[in-house]
Amino acid sequence: MEKPNLDYLEKLARGDASLRKKLIDIIKNEFPEEREEYYISLKDKDFKKTEENVHRLKHKIIILGLEENYKIANKFEHDLRDCNLDRVEDFEKILIAISYYLKTI
């Protein structure tokens, strides 16, 4: 499985440590909130809301360099328009991997 990385954020920060920290802090704050919103909408079987939450999480996935996982998230987002949850477990694995990674940075 792909491992998250900070390549994109490092490139963006261009050596500015405070900007790097700011970007990481925002992701550390936004990601758990979005993840929780995702779980709530999933539990409520609110497919439209779940799709929106996946869309927002998708951006974090690609920011953290998870290109293959981004494709999975993208497919899952599209599947949700048809109320299809086939990829829910794959998506769950991505969220777990990111959650773990964010604790390490």
Partner: peptide, 13 residues
């Protein structure tokens, strides 16, 4: 943009 990280990234750019 509804995402804070997206707004900050664009602001940075």
């Amino acid at each position: 943009d509804d995402e804070q990280i997206a707004r900050v990234i664009i602001k940075t750019l």
